[in-house]
Computed example of a mutant assay.
Amino acid sequence: MMIKGIVFDMDNTLLHSSIDFGAMKREIYTFLCDHRLLPAGLSLDLHTTSTVIAEAMNTGLLSEELSSEMWDIAKKHEIQGMIGAHLEEGSMELIQQLHGQLHLVIVTNNALEAAMSALNENGVAHYFDLIIGREAMGSLKPAPDGYLQVLKHFSHTSPKEWLSVGDAWVDGKASESAGMPFIAYRGDGAKMNSMDVAPFAQIQDIREVLGFLQPLGKD
Rank of each mutant, 00 (worst) to 15 (best):
Y127N: 06
L32I: 08
I106L: 06
F31G: 13
T51F: 02
L62F: 05
L66A: 08
I53L: 12
N122C: 12
E89I: 11
A85V: 09
V52L: 05
I106T: 09
A40M: 11
V124T: 05
Q96E: 11
M92G: 15
Y127S: 09
G90Q: 01
I95T: 01
G123M: 14
A115L: 09
H99L: 06
I79K: 12
A56W: 03
E27T: 13
F128Y: 02
L42K: 07
S43W: 04
I28A: 15
L130H: 06
A85C: 08
N122P: 07
I73S: 05
G81E: 02
H47R: 15
I106F: 08
D129F: 01
A115P: 09
I95L: 00
T30M: 09
N109L: 03
L119W: 01
L104P: 13
Y29E: 04
Q80M: 02
V105D: 01
G123P: 10
R134K: 11
L46W: 12
N58A: 07
E78Y: 01
L38M: 00
A114T: 10
E78P: 06
F128S: 00
I132Q: 09
L102K: 02
F128V: 02
E78V: 08
L62K: 09
A40F: 06
H126Y: 08
L46T: 14
E121C: 07
R36K: 10
T51I: 05
L98D: 05
S63R: 14
S63N: 10
M82P: 00
N109A: 14
T49Q: 09
E64V: 15
L104H: 02
L61M: 13
E89R: 14
